[in-house]
Design a binder for these strands. Structure first.
Length: 564
RNA sequence: UGCCCGAUGGUGUAAUGGCAACACAUCUGGUUUUGGUCCAGACAUUCUAGGUUCGAGUCCUAGUCGGGUAACCA
C-alpha cells in the first residue's frame, strides 16, 4: 500500500504477495507439491517443484510433499522413493510428507456427510450409461435414474460398497450437482469408484477409492494449503474444487493454474515416457536420453542448472515451447565455471613425432580451469607418441580449416608447434598414423621467429592415456514437436537414432580413474562429460557427454555445405 | 457445437495507464594457447477493428487465431 516498488513478479507470486499483504490466511503461505507415484519425475515436474518450494521460501511459508495416491492400479513404492530422491537432489526439503491415502478415512466420513445432506448419491449406471446421460457440449445431460434415492438407501449402499459387497464398476458415488452445467465436470461427477485392488500403502483395507477431484481439494484443505498451484488443464476443475470445499464448509485453499512446461525436441508425456521404459526403447527411467530428473542427473546436469532453467522459462498462463537450447545454455553456464579441464580424445588418431626421442617424456603445465583462478594447475606428460582427435586432421581441408593438414602447422595445446609430414594408411585407405615433427623452440606456444598458427588442438600421450567408453547424447527427437506425428507413423518412429552414439575407443587422462561417480569434467574442445553412475568403474571407465561446447566451426560447416 | 483460458521479435519472458526491457537463438566484429569463455554491435511500432483516456502492450467491446475441456485417470 505504501510501497510502489514492483519487483516484476510472475502472476502467481503477485497474487500470493497480494494475499499476504491483505492478511489473507493471516499472511500464511502454505503450498504443496502433489505428484502421483506412478512414474518418475520429469523436467516439467521440476518447474512445478521450483514454483511450489520457491513460493514457500520467498514468502516465509512452507511446502508439503503429498503423494496423490488415489489410483492403486498404477502406483508403486518404487516411485515414491524415486520422487523423494529427485526432489532432494534438486535442493528442496519439504516441511511435511503426506499421502492422499492418509485421508481415505476422513474423505469417507465427509462423503457420508454429503450423502446425508442430499448432495451425493450411489449410482448403478455403467460407464457407457453415464457417458450417454452426461450429454455433450451441445446436449444437456439427463438425470441418472438413481439420482433420487433416499438418504437411507444411499447410506446403506455406500457402506456396502465400502464393505466389498459389489464388484468393480458396479456402483459409484456421485456428487449431485447439475446435469445441465456448461462445465462437464459439474454434471454429477464420480466421487468414488470400486476397485478391488491392493494399494501400495493401504493394502486391501479399501476397495473404494476417491477420484482426483474428491481427494485433491479436501487434502489441500486438511493440510491448510493456502495456494494450490496446478497446471492449466485443471482450470475447469476449479469450480468443482470450490464446490466440494464450499459444501463441506472447511478451510478453502485457492487453486491457481499455470502453463505446463513444453521443451522442443522433448517428449514430456508421462504416459509415453512410461511406454519408452516398458518397451525397452531406453535403458530405464534414468537413461540419460530421458527428460526425467534422474535422466538429467545421470547425464551430468547439476541441480543448479535445472533450477536456473526453471527460473528462465518463467510462469505464465499461455502455452509456449521453450527451445532445448535454453537447457543447454543453463548447464554450460554452470559447468563452465566449475568443471576441471582435462583431455579426452573421442576418436583417437596416432601421431608420431619423428624428431622427439623415444622413451623420453617431459611434463607440461596446464591450467585446471581458466574461469576459476583458484582451480590451480597440474602437469601432463608429453612424448614422442600422441593421440589427437581424428577430426582435427584433414588431407584435403577447406580454406577455413585451422587444424592439422599435410605440410601444415598447428599448436599442440600447452606444448609445441607441430607439423605433419606424412600420412600412413592401411590397406583400406584408412588413415592410421601421422608422421610429424615438432619445433622445440615453440615451447611457450609462440615461435621465436614470429610465425603464427591459426589453430590449437588437444592431444594426449599415447603411453599414458587410458581407455574409456564415452557415450555421446543428443536430443531424443529430431522433430521440434514430437507429439506432432506424421500420418501413418508412430511417435516412436520419431526417436532420434543418434540420440546415443557410443565411442568405444576414447583415450582419456589417468586421473579420471580416481574420479567419483557423477563428477563432471570439460574435455577441452569437446564438451562436458561426467562419470556414469551405473556402468563406470576404475579400469573400465564409462563417461556421458552432458552437453557439447558451442561449436562455431561445425555450425559453419553445416551451413556452407558439407566438407565431405 | 457449448464453456473456459490465452495472444508482446525466430524463441522464452518483462514493462502493475506514461521512453516496449532482459535473455536465448541468429548474424557482424574484437580478444583468446579451447573455433569454448569474455567483450562490442545488428535484429519489434505489442493479432485485427472500434472505443475510453492528455496518454493504451496494459482498461472496455467485437472479431481472428491458438490451446484446454465431455475417464468409474491424475
Amino acid at each position: 500500500m505504501n510501497e510502489s516498488q514492483h519487483k516484476s513478479l510472475d502472476f502467481i507470486r503477485q497474487r500470493v504477495a497480494d494475499d499476504v499483504a491483505n492478511g489473507k490466511n493471516d499472511g500464511r503461505v502454505q503450498t504443496r507439491f502433489p505428484p502421483e507415484p506412478n512414474g518418475y519425475l520429469h523436467i516439467g515436474h521440476a518447474k512445478s517443484i521450483c514454483l511450489n518450494f520457491g513460493l514457500a521460501e520467498e514468502f516465509g511459508g512452507k511446502c508439503n510433499l503429498r503423494f496423490d495416491d488415489t489410483n492403486p492400479e498404477k502406483e508403486d513404492n518404487e516411485f515414491v522413493d524415486a520422487i523423494r530422491e529427485d526432489i532432494r537432489w534438486l535442493g528442496f526439503e519439504w516441511d511435511a510428507e503426506y499421502f492422499a491415502s492418509d485421508y481415505f478415512e476422513k474423505l469417507y466420513i465427509w462423503a457420508i456427510e454429503l450423502i446425508q445432506r442430499g448432495k451425493a448419491y450411489v449410482c448403478d449406471q455403467t460407464i457407457e450409461e453415464v457417458r450417454e446421460y452426461r450429454g455433450g457440449w451441445d446436449k444437456p445431460g439427463k438425470n441418472s435414474p438413481y439420482r433420487e434415492r433416499t438418504v437411507e438407501e444411499n447410506l446403506d449402499l455406500f457402506s456396502r460398497m465400502k464393505n466389498g459387497e459389489f464388484k468393480d464398476g458396479e456402483k459409484t458415488l456421485r456428487a449431485k450437482i447439475d446435469m445441465n452445467s456448461d462445465n462437464m465436470n459439474l454434471r454429477d461427477p464420480a466421487m468414488y469408484r470400486i476397485r478391488h485392488a491392493a494399494h501400495h500403502r493401504t493394502g486391501d483395507q479399501w476397495c473404494i477409492y476417491p477420484n482426483y477431484d474428491w481427494a485433491h481439494g479436501q487434502s489441500d484443505s486438511i493440510e491448510g494449503i493456502t495456494h494450490s498451484v496446478c497446471t492449466l488443464e485443471f482450470e475447469q476443475h476449479r469450480p468443482l474444487y470450490d464446490w466440494y470445499i464450499g459444501q463441506l464448509e472447511v478451510h478453502h485453499p485457492q487453486q491457481i493454474e499455470f502453463a505446463k512446461l513444453v521443451i522442443s525436441n522433448t517428449m514430456m508425456s508421462k504416459r509415453k515416457l512410461t511406454e519408452l521404459v516398458a518397451g525397452g526403447f531406453v535403458e530405464g527411467w534414468d537413461d540419460p536420453r530421458m527428460p526425467t530428473i534422474s535422466g538429467f542427473r545421470r547425464r551430468g546436469f547439476t541441480p543448479e542448472s535445472i533450477r536456473n532453467f526453471a527460473k528462465r522459462v518463467g510462469i505464465t498462463k499461455h502455452n509456449s515451447t521453450t527451445d532445448i537450447a535454453v537447457m543447454n545454455l543453463c548447464i554450460r553456464e554452470h559447468l563452465n565455471r566449475i568443471a576441471p579441464r582435462v583431455t579426452g580424445v573421442l576418436d583417437p588418431l596416432k601421431v608420431v613425432i619423428e624428431n622427439y626421442p623415444e622413451d623420453e617424456f617431459e611434463m607440461r603445465m596446464t591450467g585446471v580451469n581458466p574461469e576459476d583462478e583458484n582451480a590451480g594447475t597440474r602437469e601432463v606428460p608429453f612424448g614422442r607418441e600422441l593421440y589427437i582427435e581424428r577430426s582435427d586432421f584433414m588431407e584435403e581441408a577447406p580454406k577455413k580449416f585451422f587444424r592439422l593438414t599435410v605440410g601444415g602447422e598447428v599448436r599442440l595445446r600447452n606444448a609445441f608447434f607441430l607439423k605433419c609430414n606424412e600420412v600412413i594408411k592401411d590397406k583400406q585407405g584408412e588413415i592410421v598414423e601421422l608422421r610429424c615433427t615438432y619445433d622445440p623452440e615453440t615451447s611457450g606456444g609462440k615461435a621465436p621467429d614470429g610465425r603464427k598458427v591459426k589453430g590449437t588442438i588437444h592431444w594426449i600421450s599415447a603411453a599414458h592415456a587410458i581407455d574409456a567408453e564415452v557415450r555421446l547424447y543428443d536430443v531424443m527427437f529430431e522433430n521440434e514437436d514430437p507429439s506432432d506425428v506424421p500420418e501413418g507413423k508412430d511417435w516412436k518412429d520419431l526417436i532420434n537414432p543418434k540420440a546415443l552414439v557410443v565411442m568405444q575407443n576414447a583415450k582419456v587422462e589417468p586421473l579420471l580413474n580416481e574420479a567419483g561417480t557423477g563428477d563432471s569434467f570439460q574435455f577441452v574442445r569437446n564438451g562436458y562429460f561426467c562419470i556414469d553412475s551405473k556402468d563406470s568403474r576404475p579400469g573400465k571407465l564409462v563417461l556421458n557427454r552432458t552437453v557439447t561446447l558451442k561449436d562455431a566451426w561445425s555450425k559453419q560447416q553445416k551451413k556452407g555445405g558439407s566438407p565431405k
